[in-house]
Write a protein that binds this DNA or RNA. Sequence first.
DNA 1: GATTCGTGGGC
DNA 2: TGCCCAAGAAT
Length: 298
Amino acid sequence: MTRAAAPFPVADLVRLHERVLEWFDVAQRDLPWRRDASPWAVMVSEFMLQQTPVSRVLPVYESWLQRWPSPAALAADSPGEAVRAWGRLGYPRRALRLHAAAVAIVAHHGGEVPPALDDLLALPGVGSYTAAAISSFAFAGRHVVLDTNVRRVFARIAEGEQLPATSVTSAERGLATALLPATEAHRWAAATMELGALICTARSPRCTECPVADLCRWRAAGYPEYDGARRPTQSWDGTDRQCRGRLLAVLRDSAGPVAKPQLDLVWPDAVQRERALDGLVADGLVEPVGDDSFALPG
DNA sequence: GATTCGTGGGC
DNA sequence: TGCCCAAGAAT
């Protein structure tokens, strides 16, 4: 049970807002989803950016919106085409969920991305972060936007700790709420995310370039190292995830169904291979075709 | 809460 | 060179 950090004096809070927002004005990256993007474009970017770096998202984002410029356009195509276009972004279930979300938007919201947090949260693949982000960035809504960047920035500046806890606590959400400015909350959200992405980075923070270094409690405390529990490092070699990735890659790169013997070539362990393939089918990423073939979902 | 779920780049 | 990390969600 860690005691909540003392709140910022009002004067410091005002400085914090001013400096971060001013810094954002001059330092923010020129990203396509910030250039007068439609709500749908913002939504697509948020799905793709879940656990995925900007540099890898950019090309897929561009081609995706060119092909499917609206929820209706995506909904009219097959989920398998969404999975194929997702390419090697990773976590391909996101492609499936984005497609399902597009279908739901057409069915329940007249084909327009809804601005309300509740409506967004009800969409597949949209959790607390993504709902707040879409409502903030596409509709200038006022919400607490807690992504990995913002959590790290607040942990350092306000709590004096190197890194936030493994999962979001109610105290942390309370802190973020207390820090939310009365106006320009959507810009505050984008600015704090950008500060975390460019300056207050996980590994080698650029504190000399930080606009609020003098307000930072982690810095004032002498940069103590994080002592809490870490997310367990995920293994890769030999895992089901690696196997799933290989199987799906074969199907993505094939125009039509693939015979099972062809799939068998990419993974030596038959037991694990079957389990992974069953899992892909259960997830709706793959569907059986005929007796002995598999394809992306039609 | 703890796990599962891809992929690739940086240090 | 391995390890850590990247705009999380669902179960």
